[in-house]
């Protein structure tokens, strides 16, 4: 294995990029991770405890760091990739600062970006103080302080709004972000743990509990924690004179439009592709999914290879995934990359 000279560039040092870097490193390849931020870890740095088992996000970051220790790939931070130029026999990767890297294979792992909730104006994010996002709540939980309203009071009634920025033609995102339902269940339980007296309501369209232990957590939320789930999408939120929030939805199971007051509303924001991924994809001649994620060349057999030879994709830059799925996907990408490189080598030796 020591005579391997082939070089792989991974764009993005989130869970997907780091996991692929360790696996490819373990297989003996030369790997360079280009990460635009000062630190690697991606969104894991923002989360406190992870669904479905409340494992501290820090533990997964530790696991990824250990992987790096053993197989030490080259990691370059503050390196923002803006485009890729596929050449006949190699790939040219161009950074925002003008630096150019070359490699045999490029693995795009640029991840996602949280939907900008301000675009959903009718929910009043950044207009009404007590409307926050799931990302804001994660920060509050991480800080260890009690969950409070802007006025510093303990909220008595809290609403979680599902599908914010997902499954919504009005904002141009028809895809389901997949992780927000379970995030809503997880966060509802966490808040209830902090504030046992609070009444918590989740407004959903479908509870998409696809993963291992997701449905179980949903049941626990209802049975053990007394969280109420109302099937109806919220149409708008308005602020009352006392700073509380009035929310309008239809309870579609009883067929009644309703207005309810809340002290705090949490928007379960979905995933959209990271800024810049679009330009990178276009420069490399890649196709896109309806949700503008990077498309693979086959939905069943080959989710990590693209239509451009030598360019691979993994993680949430290709579709919304949980951390566990992201890590699995990264390892699957590794296998594909290795066989592609071996094929290439065989061909050049013949």
């Amino acid at each position: 294995m020591n005579n391997i000279t082939q070089h792989i560039i991974i764009i993005g040092g989130g869970p997907a990029g780091l996991e692929a870097a360790s696996s490819l490193g373990a297989a003996g390849y030369k790997v360079t991770v280009l990460e635009k931020e000062e630190q690697t870890g991606g969104k894991l740095r923002l989360w406190y405890k992870l669904f479905p088992d409340f494992r501290p996000s820090a533990e997964v970051q530790e696991y990824l760091a250990n992987g790096q220790k053993m197989n030490s790939p080259e990691i370059i931070t503050k390196a923002e990739v803006i485009s890729i130029t596929p050449e006949i026999d190699y790939q040219k990767v161009i950074l925002a600062d003008g630096q150019i890297f070359t490699a045999d294979v490029v693995l795009i792992a640029t991840g996602f970006q949280v939907f900008n909730a301000e675009k959903k104006e009718e929910y009043g994010y950044k207009i009404y103080d007590n409307v926050i996002t799931s990302v804001d709540l994660e920060q509050q939980l991480k800080s260890g302080d009690a969950v409070k309203t802007v006025a510093g009071e303990i909220p008595q009634r809290i609403a979680f709004i599902h599908c914010v920025g997902s499954r919504d033609k009005k904002v141009g995102n028809i895809h389901c972000s997949r992780v927000c339902c379970i995030t809503g269940v997880k966060q509802a339980i966490e808040v209830k743990e902090h504030l046992p007296k609070a009444e918590i309501f989740n407004f959903y369209m479908d509870m998409r509990m696809f993963g291992q232990n997701f449905e179980e957590l949903y049941i626990e939320a209802q049975q053990k924690w007394g969280i109420t789930f109302i099937r109806g999408r919220v149409s708008e939120i308005a602020e009352n004179i006392d700073g509380t929030l009035q929310l309008k939805a239809e309870d579609t199971l009883s067929g009644r439009p309703m207005k309810m007051n809340f002290d705090l509303v949490v928007l379960l924001v979905g995933m959209v592709p990271a800024v810049g991924t679009d330009a990178i994809g276009k420069s490399a001649g890649l196709a896109f999914t309806a949700g503008n994620f990077l498309a693979s060349n086959d939905t069943h057999f080959n989710q990590n290879e693209t239509h451009t030879p030598g360019i691979f994709v993994t993680g949430t830059c290709r579709e919304p995934l949980s951390v566990a799925e992201t890590l699995t996907d990264a390892r699957a990408a590794t296998v594909r990359i290795i066989s592609w490189l071996r094929d290439k080598e065989l061909k050049s030796n013949n």
Binding site: M205, R231, R233, S235, E236, E250, G255, P257, M258
Partner: peptide, 23 residues
């Protein structure tokens, strides 16, 4: 229609009448 209820929740007629555009 995915039966989400947003139309009914915003509909002024649904507030006053026995009326549900989603249905």
């Amino acid at each position: 229609c995915m039966n989400c209820g947003v139309c009914t929740a915003i509909c002024p007629a649904a507030e006053f009448y026995h009326y549900d555009p989603r249905v």
